[in-house]
Write a protein that binds this DNA or RNA. Structure first.
Length: 419
RNA sequence: GCUGGAAUCGUCUAGCGGCAAUGACAAGAGACUGUAAAUCUCUCGCCUUCGGGCUUCGUAGGUUCGAGUCCUACUUCCAGCA
């Protein structure tokens, strides 16, 4: 295979659905799909080494252009993300589109998929991101020194507020940053809307995201070979929970020359399947699709069934750090396992379970006042949870290839969610 | 033995006349989905029809409308001197 090629091949479909198993080819290796990409926002997965990632069967890592924006030049100098990070397999970078929401309308809030949680948007004056047609103005709240003088009312800061820096990121900036970082796959710059945004706002935002997609594509073409290997670009589909918006944007971006597609949005759990179906019925079948930011087993199963090929999510590592560990019979809360001699899951093939480290011991490390103990816990717990999700995608792939997806899905869901 | 000082919710701690009583830790429950997350929320004397009721700050008295807070005695602990 040529070093410069990107490709996707479908190996087998799930009969009667949009789902498939396949292989994505990138300059840094293949990704057998469905696959879970580990999240290493700043170039490393928290508390996991590249060696750990290999050991638990990770195939690809997702990093973030926004978080690496100030390091992109030195990453380019080192030959790109793979060389710089020590993870030499396939990589993907997000554009910063998630931060438009997480630092803007969703600042200080959790991203929930439950209707009951009653999502509201953060007031404009408190936001650290402001959206304009040209791009997004980000305010960096850390290490504030520079005082923003008056006469900057177009910026999302109060007068005389101390902030370190104002960053402007639009499609062109995001593409340049991502092309310097040099992941195998990039995301077009998009705006992720929140569950609280109206149809009208979503429509307006979606049109802008589509214009940004076009601009992303144009800028990306200029720089995609700068590091000596071909970097690919996915267009990102937004449109909230509305079928007309979703189908229209999928058709529109689907006709553009992207290498694949990101399926984005803040979803209610009950809507996920429909939204993915609307998008994937319209998108070209022969291009890979990445479902952005989801990893609960039911979400991955629906995603795979509805034609998503790759996934990423911070939940496995974050929840590991917070004491929630995954098992086939549902999640456990480590708090309840003081002095327990049990293993998390005696059939698990992760390094932590293979070493026979008990829940009691894990809890002790987690609750320890020693940072060293805690960090050991974060490593052991992250290894377990990430391996659990990777194994889930491996088993889904296996089931698709064997024509047993439906059977596998039902059995898994029954055991995991006790229904 | 004498002289000081101290005793508060599992632990440490605030409290100098209006207090069911501060904060931290521990404990318990929940959350977390393209990482502002080694984070966040809630509970943490007993009962409650959620209005409130009851019992609490070493023990026993006292002063006061009112005491964890002031006074007396006792108990225990700490420090200094013998």
């Amino acid at each position: 295979m040529s070093k410069n090629s990107f490709g996707f091949k479908i190996e087998k479909r799930i009969p009667g659905t949009l789902g498939r198993a396949g292989v994505i080819k990138t300059p840094h290796g293949e990704i057998k799909t469905p696959a879970f990409m580990v999240v290493g926002t700043t170039g490393a997965v928290r508390y996991l080494t590249p060696g750990d990632l290999r050991e638990i069967g990770a195939q690809a890592m997702l990093s973030n252009g926004y978080h690496l924006r100030n390091k992109s030049k030195s990453i380019a100098k080192d030959g790109g993300l793979a060389k710089w990070s020590g993870w030499d397999g396939p990589t993907l970078t997000d554009s910063g589109g998630f931060q438009v929401m997480s630092l803007g309308s969703g600042l200080g809030k959790v991203v929930s998929m439950e209707r009951e949680k009653g999502v509201t948007n953060t007031p404009h004056k408190e936001r650290l991101a402001r959206v304009t047609e040209l791009g997004v103005i980000f305010k960096d709240p850390f290490g504030g020194e520079d005082i923003i003088k008056s006469g900057t009312s177009h910026l999302p800061v109060a007068e005389n507020q101390k902030v370190k820096k104002i960053d402007f990121i639009g499609p062109e900036q995001s593409m340049r940053i991502q092309c310097r970082i040099g992941a195998d796959i990039h995301m077009a710059f998009d705006e992720l809307t929140s569950l609280a945004d109206s149809y009208e706002y979503n429509k307006k935002s979606l049109r802008r995201t589509e214009r940004w997609a076009k601009r992303s594509l144009k800028e990306h073409l200029k720089h995609r070979d700068d590091l000596g290997y071909r970097q690919s670009l996915y267009g990102v589909l937004q449109g909230g929970r509305w079928e007309d918006l979703r189908r229209k944007t999928a058709k529109k971006l689907g006709a553009m020359d992207f290498d694949g597609y990101g399926l984005g949005g803040a979803f209610l759990k009950e809507d996920l399947g429909d939204i993915l179906r609307w998008c994937n019925e319209e998108l070209p079948e022969n291009k890979p699709r990445h479902l952005l930011g989801l990893s609960r087993p039911d979400d991955i199963l629906i995603g795979a069934e509805m034609g998503a090929d790759t996934f990423d999510c911070v939940a496995p590592t974050r929840e590991a750090r917070h004491g929630k560990l995954y098992t086939r019979d549902g999640d456990i809360n480590l708090r309840k396992f003081a002095d327990s001699e049990e293993l998390i899951d005696k059939h698990c093939d992760c390094p932590t379970c293979k070493q026979k480290i008990t829940c009691g011991r894990l809890r002790e490390l987690w609750k320890s006042t020693s940072l060293e103990d805690k960090e050991l816990y974060y490593n052991l717990a992250s290894l377990h949870n990430v391996r659990f999700i990777i194994r889930l995608t491996e088993e889904i792939r296996e089931a698709i290839l064997n024509g047993k997806f439906e059977e596998y899905k039902n059995e898994f869901l029954k055991r995991y969610y006790h229904k």
